[in-house]
């Protein structure tokens, strides 16, 4: 089967997005109280996941999307 690959640039964007989430998760509890620390991390996870989906969009077959 001909396996499609995501472009390195797009993959890099996805990786950076997830590293950003991890960094935010580390700094948030110390800098923002309770819910206001949690909220940006939760939003960042969903955004990074959406970025990952965008990165992989062209590599997946119709049924996998």
């Amino acid at each position: 089967m001909d396996e499609k690959q995501a472009t390195p640039g797009k993959v890099a964007i996805g990786v950076v997005a997830w590293i950003g989430v991890a960094v935010l998760a580390v700094i948030a509890p110390a800098n923002w109280e309770g819910f206001w620390g949690f909220l940006p991390v939760a939003i960042a996870v969903v955004v990074a996941w959406a970025v990952g989906e965008w990165v992989m969009k062209d590599t997946m077959e119709e049924g996998q999307r």
Partner: peptide, 11 residues
């Protein structure tokens, strides 16, 4: 505790 927390949050 910190690593388990981060791993669960980022999945």
């Amino acid at each position: 505790e910190v690593l388990v927390g981060i791993a669960l949050i980022v999945g």
